[in-house]
Design a protein around this nucleic acid. Structure first.
Length: 554
RNA sequence: GGGCCUGUAGCGCAGCAUGGACAGCGCAUACAACUAAAAAAGUUGGCUUAACUGCCUUCUAAGCAGAGGGUCCCAGGUUCAAAUCCUGGCAGGCCCGCCA
């Protein structure tokens, strides 16, 4: 049932003017209790009358069984029939359950995330990347699309050689005695501490790697396998599943052929040193080198071939790269060059940039070891959740304690990150993120558990029969109705923060309701149970879209 | 020098796409002594895991209600109406590599 449409039809009947009612009909601010409002300013010009007068005249003409109308200043305020609306919404949710809010867009969407380096463990920035990737994947599945998760592993280059060189010098052929990606990462830190950046040895090593020197390749394979093993453990814990992984080492040479082909067709040019470049000056992107004067490929070159390969692999309708905002320029160049080469699919390629996460002391630098790595952050948060749980519940099994603290800890991190607009930088304040009060993941889980508890303890069945309905009850139900729209908006804007916000507002309304009316033992118990149940379905859907798990008991 | 992004209460954020009625939310918020003309701010102290005020015999108080706190960065412009759109500034971040 589309309530807005009912109102618009009624308006159209009375106002015989060419006006876009969909555009003007609005949801009034909180202090106005109406469900919808129509400002009469736009009519003032047409009728040459004061909008207050117009509203007064119209109010008596518009009638419907679904709503009542009031003229308040220059506004026509519409009050939906609460019982009717509540019944319609609850009916639909209890029927569709966790499918409420689903859509059928039927597109194929490929998402690239998080793109690790094989010289160090995942850090806070990757966490942001991962949680955005997870959440968007869930959102696009909810809107009825086929989602394919791909990953790009940065497994070659100078930075990889650094950890290799440090291992060669100081590693004594040791095997990992800790989580293997951390083991590798320690050598990366060791390199910048003990070895000179200008060290000729590092270039020598890269040359050896490129010329397939047996020892170098073996060391590379060994250390990469350690790093990847450790990174996969983190993925598993965080809930990341990858459908196809691309390794840069497999593509950095293939890009070269693409560029040379483009050069032959005179799409690209050569400078005096024989380096091939794309002239992007008219796009305000300057001249971009695609092949070095010695003929080797650069970063963007390998991405060109990966981009083409992806399209050949999946023929997707949309490709989303989740990569930090410092690479905005890189992706502009990448897409322009692909366009120059005549690949039409680039029009469906999209770079979702996300902002930096800072520590209170400043930017994270893995070279200096001043990072919050993903694993220790997860450990810290779950440990904290555990302490909170132990404070509250004395007789809880160890297994249950572990399970709950893991879910709560991860929810705290995920929500903390997702609640920020992806584009904005923010400071990760460990002290604040551990707080379990206010606008946090644990607050949402707690609210969910409260709802579950009511349903568990009640002996009655939810039935939608409405005698009376209070404001608190009505507001919860109306908010449930907004879920569909919010899912659509966050999909359209690539922004899970909208859903995070929605979930919090919904939970807040529910807690107000919870406080106001006691469900169990109420005369209206069955009706109130139907609100609780519908709330539970929707909040669970919302939290799952944010990649958070829920708990029946907190 | 050029490009992109950000600027909303003490702190952290939402709203900006699609301009509308009083700009929402979370965190924070005690007292005494001292420094101080005052304000702001700071220092010290005790209690102790606790700090604005109220609410646990009631479905989990990880909660709810209430209070104070705002030049929506600045200046112009468009409009009946601007936090929202446009122009120009100011401040901060990122990028503009034959690194990845």
């Amino acid at each position: 049932m589309d309530f807005k449409k009912e109102i618009i039809n009624a308006l159209k009947k009375e106002i015989n003017q060419d006006i876009n009612f969909e555009e003007y009909l609005e949801v009034p601010p909180d202090h106005v209790s109406a469900d919808y409002a129509f400002p009469c300013f736009s009519l003032a010009g047409i009728y040459k009358k004061n909008p207050v007068e117009i509203s007064k005249e119209l109010v008596n003409k518009i009638k419907s069984e679904y709503f009542s109308v009031k003229a308040e200043g220059p506004y026509l305020n519409f009050f939906l029939n609460k019982k009717f609306v509540a019944e319609e919404i609850l009916k639909q949710i209890l029927k569709e359950k966790e499918n409420y809010g689903n859509k059928k867009e039927n597109k194929k969407i490929v998402i690239e995330s998080p793109g690790p380096n094989t010289n160090k463990p995942l850090h806070l920035g990757h966490l942001r990347n991962m949680v955005l990737g997870l959440s968007l994947s869930n959102i696009y599945k909810k809107t009825g699309n086929k989602v394919i998760n791909v990953d790009i592993v940065n497994d070659r280059g100078v930075h990889i050689c650094k950890s290799m060189l440090a291992y060669k010098k100081f590693g004594k052929n040791k095997k990992p005695d800790k989580k293997p990606d951390h083991f590798v990462g320690d050598f990366y830190v060791l390199y910048s501490k003990k070895l000179n950046e200008k060290d000729e040895e590092i270039n020598e090593m890269l040359r050896k790697w490129e010329s397939n020197d047996k020892d170098t390749i073996n060391l590379w394979k060994k250390m990469n396998s350690w790093a990847i093993k450790g990174i996969n453990e983190t993925y598993k814990r965080f809930g990341i599943k990858i459908n196809k992984t691309y390794y840069e080492s497999n593509y950095y040479k293939k890009g070269k052929e693409l560029v040379l082909k483009g050069y032959k067709k005179e799409i690209f040019k050569k400078n005096k040193d024989n380096a091939v470049y794309a002239d992007l000056k008219d796009k305000n992107l300057g001249n971009k080198i695609l092949l070095r004067s010695d003929g080797t490929s650069v970063y963007v070159t390998q991405d060109l071939s990966v981009a083409v390969q992806r399209y050949n692999d999946f023929k997707m309708d949309k490709m989303i790269y989740i990569v930090a905002n410092e690479q905005i320029y890189h992706f502009k160049v990448l897409f322009e060059v692909l366009k120059m080469l005549g690949y039409k699919f680039v029009s469906n390629y999209y770079h979702l940039p996300y902002g930096m996460i800072y520590l209170p002391e400043g930017k994270m630098k893995s070279r200096e070891g001043t990072v919050v790595d993903a694993d220790s952050l997860m450990d810290d948060m779950t440990e904290l959740a555990k302490k909170e749980l132990e404070k509250r519940y004395k007789n809880i099994s160890k297994k249950e304690l572990e399970k709950r603290s893991e879910i709560i800890g991860l929810a705290a991190i995920k929500y903390f990150i997702l609640n920020h607009d992806p584009l904005k930088d923010f400071v990760y304040n460990p002290k604040e993120s551990i707080s379990f009060e206010g606008n946090t993941g644990p607050y949402l889980l707690y609210t969910y558990a409260r709802a579950s508890s009511i349903l568990r303890k009640s002996r009655k069945k939810p039935v939608i029969k409405i005698k009376d309905i209070s404001d608190e009850e009505y507001l919860v139900i109306k908010k449930l109705y907004d879920f569909k729209e919010t899912v659509g908006n966050s999909a359209e804007k690539y922004d899970p923060a909208l859903l995070a916000n929605y979930a919090f507002e919904l939970a807040k309304l529910f807690n107000e309701f919870y406080h106001e009316s006691k469900v169990i033992g109420s005369e209206r118990e069955q009706f109130l149970l139907s609100i609780v149940l519908a709330f539970k379905y929707v909040l669970k859907s919302a939290l799952n879209l944010l990649s958070m798990e829920t708990l029946e008991k907190m």
